[in-house]
Amino acid sequence: MTKQARAEQTRSLLLDAAADLLHRDGYANTSMVDISRAAGVTKGGLYFHFSSKDEICDEVQDAAVAVLHAFVARQLTTPSPALRRLADLGYALMSWIDTDARVGASFRLAREMGAQDVRFVAFTRAWLAQVHRYVTEARASGELAATAPLDIVTLLLVVTCVGLESVVASHTVTLESDLVDTLAALWRLVDLSHPACRTP
């Protein structure tokens, strides 16, 4: 293995460890020492790649944004109504929160740290922008009533997803099913689309 390949592998190990810890324990309870220990990398090796915990948080969110963009790119290869893509994006997000530590960590960072520094809401803002894009497309294609306020429709969908993540993470409620199934049930209660375009 070349020196560059080893460096890339070490960086990847550190990012994976950071995402796991941030998702599980949150920002305040995750230290640089914790990250280096979890990754099996010396503290010096960690600081060679990252100068601070905040820098690692930035990269974790960048990785989560890449997951989002890759999913949207795949969606665009198969033409479908905007509301169908919006619903699928919501289901994907709920699945990622459970299965992808990069996304889970990014959501937790926004919830815990977003009020202190906007750097911690990079992923959630990218996701919000995509939701608004799909809502705007749905209006343009006639899937949403012309009188439906775009910002309010966007907010409704975002609050639903963010609220689900928050109440489950805080153990406020215990779901009988997973986040994807719960969002699907909630989505069926929200009559936003033209009947012909409703998701099953």
Rank of each mutant, 00 (worst) to 15 (best):
P149N: 01
R108P: 06
T10D: 12
S166N: 06
A115M: 12
T174N: 08
D117C: 08
P81N: 04
A82N: 08
V158A: 13
A17T: 10
L128A: 15
V153P: 06
D98H: 11
L175A: 06
V180R: 13
A38Q: 15
G26R: 11
A185S: 12
P79K: 11
V103D: 14
L68E: 05
Y27A: 12
D88C: 02
R102L: 09
D181K: 02
V135E: 06
D16F: 10
Q9A: 14
L68Y: 09
W187P: 01
R119S: 15
E59D: 08
A148Y: 05
V180F: 02
R125Q: 15
V168W: 00
R125S: 15
S31G: 04
R139T: 03
L14E: 12
A110P: 02
A101N: 15
D62I: 08
L21I: 09
R6S: 15
A63M: 04
S170M: 02
L144Y: 10
P195T: 02
I152F: 07
T78F: 01
A146T: 10
V180I: 04
Q9R: 13
V60F: 06
G44L: 03
M32Q: 11
L86Y: 11
A126S: 11
V180P: 00
V173A: 03
R24I: 08
W127I: 00
D58E: 14
A146G: 02
W127N: 00
F48C: 06
P149M: 09
L164V: 05
E55N: 09
R111L: 09
S80K: 07
Q75F: 10
T172W: 06
V158W: 09
R119C: 06
M32D: 10
Y47M: 07
A70G: 11
T99L: 10
S12H: 14
V162P: 01
W127E: 03
F123E: 08
S31R: 02
L21W: 05
K53E: 01
E112I: 03
G40E: 13
A140Y: 05
V162W: 08
A115Q: 12
R188S: 12
D16Q: 15
M1R: 12
A28H: 12
A38L: 09
W96P: 05
D98P: 03
D181G: 01
M1F: 11
L15P: 10
V180Q: 10
D58A: 03
V118E: 15
A66D: 09
R108M: 10
A169M: 05
K3W: 13
H69W: 01
